[in-house]
Design a protein around this nucleic acid. Structure first.
Lengths: 116, 116
DNA sequence: CATAAACATTGATGAGTGTAAATATTTACC
DNA sequence: GGTAAATATTTACACTCATCAATGTTTATG
């Protein structure tokens, strides 16, 4: 196991933004998560997956929702997966991505939280 | 008054990510807000201001908290101000930035919210 | 095994971004 | 009014990033 924390692990560790100043290390850990979400296409991808039944969706369904090339969608999914916002599972020829809602909730608590 | 909605106005309008797929227009409106937060320096700036007494802080205090040039900090504050996350008020020679906590809370509700 | 389908990877490119140096602007005070 | 302090703006640059075309990989099926 690695000593490096993924962004989703990092975000679960800090008090809300408004309570105490975020340390440099914490900020460095959380920023990648926000960066991953800070793109219109990835925001919609995340929302499509999360709001889909079971909180998961097949890539085949996602490609059709955008006027973008397949590699581009694949790239965005990879970004969301790498920061830990999406889980990835292959079933036969299809790949399913699943939303990590705890990660979203931890991030939300960091941004808008009232207390630790 | 403008017909254009600022990012902070936009973010107050949508159901949570996990409830219903975000529309293209909604995503385009919200992404700039996340983009503004998706930088370690701006995250810390936002946190420094928001956690300061009264939810506001003088630029003079903020500059010293970073190992960055004054124009760079000024630039980041401008970014946060332009998306509506920070209010700006000049008092004499000093400029005070104030956190818009409702904006943060709306954003948090969008990301981690359970229902509309 | 050959072929097709689903998805990922590579490589290239144009647009955007964080940073600092230099300069400008505003305010206070002598 | 002249000077100094606080903050913003401009300009330039290195770097990142979103996108696509082309190609690769994996799985199923005939």
């Amino acid at each position: 196991m690695s000593l490096e924390l993924t962004p989703v692990q990092t975000v679960a560790c800090c008090s809300p933004l408004t309570r105490v100043p975020l340390s440099e290390k914490e900020a460095d850990g959380v920023a990648p998560l926000l960066k991953a979400l800070a793109d219109p296409v990835r925001l919609r991808l995340m929302s499509l997956v999360a709001s889909h039944e079971g909180g998961e969706a097949c890539v085949c369904d996602l490609n059709d929702a955008f006027d973008l090339s397949q590699p581009t969608i694949s790239h965005h999914l990879k970004v969301l997966h790498e920061v830990g916002l999406l889980d990835r599972e292959k079933r036969g020829v299809w790949v399913y991505y699943k939303a990590r809602t705890e990660a979203l909730q931890n991030l939300a608590a960091l941004i808008g939280g009232q207390a630790k």
